[in-house]
Simulated assay, not measured.
Amino acid sequence: MVFVSIDLTHPQAAGSRTPGRDAGPRRRSELASFLRSRRERLDPEQLGMPTGTRRRTPGLRREEVAQLAGVGVTWYTWLEQGRQINASVQVLDAVARTLRLDQAETEHLYRLADVPAVPAVVNCRRLAPEVQQILDGLRPLPASVVNGRSDILAWNRSFALLFPFMVNAPEDKRNSLWSTFTSPKCCHPYVNRGDDLGRMVANFRARYGRHVGEPAWDEFVKRLCAASPEFAELWAEHGVADGGVHVKVFRHPALGELSVVSTTFDLAAAPETRMMVSTPNDESTREKFEMLRQDTLPKGLTYPCGHSFDPPPEAERASSPGAYTLHKV
Rank of each mutant, 00 (worst) to 15 (best):
Ser228Tyr: 03
Lys222Thr: 07
Leu127Pro: 00
Pro321Thr: 10
Arg21Leu: 12
Gly198Thr: 02
Arg38Cys: 09
Ala270Asn: 11
Val240Asn: 03
Val260Arg: 03
Pro58Arg: 06
Val261Ile: 07
Trp235Phe: 07
Arg193Ile: 12
Arg39Pro: 10
Leu267Ile: 11
Asp295Ser: 06
Val167His: 08
Gly213Ile: 13
Tyr190Thr: 01
Leu197Asp: 10
Thr296Arg: 15
Pro140His: 01
Trp217Asp: 00
Leu292Gly: 06
Ala232Thr: 01
Trp217Ile: 09
Leu109Ile: 05
Val167Ala: 07
Ala227Ser: 02
Ser176Asp: 03
Asn175Phe: 07
Leu138Asn: 03
His307Gly: 12
Leu177Val: 07
Lys222Glu: 12
Thr302Asp: 14
Pro280Val: 11
Val145Thr: 09
Ala323Thr: 14
Phe165Trp: 01
Val146Ser: 03
Lys288Tyr: 13
Asp43Lys: 07
Arg149Met: 06
Arg36Glu: 14
Glu233Asn: 02
Ala66His: 04
Gly198Ala: 15
Ala113Ser: 09
Val89Ala: 10
Gln90Asp: 08
Ala23Glu: 15
Ser150Leu: 12
Ala202Lys: 06
Leu301Thr: 08
Glu30Ser: 08
Cys124Ala: 13
Val277Glu: 09
Glu171Met: 00
Leu68Met: 07
Asn123Ala: 15
Ser183Val: 00
Pro312Gly: 01
Asp43Thr: 12
Val146Gly: 03
Pro312Lys: 05
Leu326Thr: 11
Gly148Phe: 15
Pro116Leu: 05
Arg223Trp: 02
Asp196Lys: 11
Ala143Ile: 00
Pro19Thr: 04
Arg149Val: 10
Pro280Tyr: 09
Arg39Leu: 13
Val73Phe: 02
Cys186Pro: 05
Ser308His: 07
Ser88Met: 01
Leu141Val: 08
Asp242Gly: 07
Pro312Thr: 11
His246Leu: 06
Arg274Asp: 03
Glu272Met: 15
Val167Trp: 02
Tyr303Leu: 01
Val121Thr: 14
Ala268Trp: 10
Gln103Ser: 15
Val95Gln: 05
Leu255Asp: 01
Ala216Arg: 02
Phe220Lys: 05
Ser144Cys: 15
His188Pro: 00
Phe181Cys: 00
Leu101Tyr: 04
Arg56Ile: 14
Leu326Ile: 04
Leu8Thr: 07
Asp196Pro: 03
Arg38Glu: 00
Asp102Arg: 13
Glu64Cys: 08
Phe289Thr: 13
Phe265Ala: 12
Leu68Gly: 11
Arg39Ala: 10
Leu47Lys: 05
Thr53Arg: 10
Leu161Tyr: 00
Gln294Met: 06
Gly20Leu: 13
Val65Trp: 04
Gln132Tyr: 04
Pro19Ala: 13
Leu35His: 11
Ser158Gln: 06
Arg55Ser: 09
Ala87Leu: 13
Arg293Met: 15
Arg293Val: 11
Thr302Ile: 14
Gln81His: 07
Ala23Leu: 15
Ser278Gly: 10
Thr106Glu: 15
Trp178Val: 04
Cys186Met: 10
Thr180Cys: 03
Arg62Lys: 09
Val245Leu: 04
Leu267Asn: 01
Pro280Arg: 12
Pro321Trp: 09
Gly70Trp: 14
His188Asn: 04
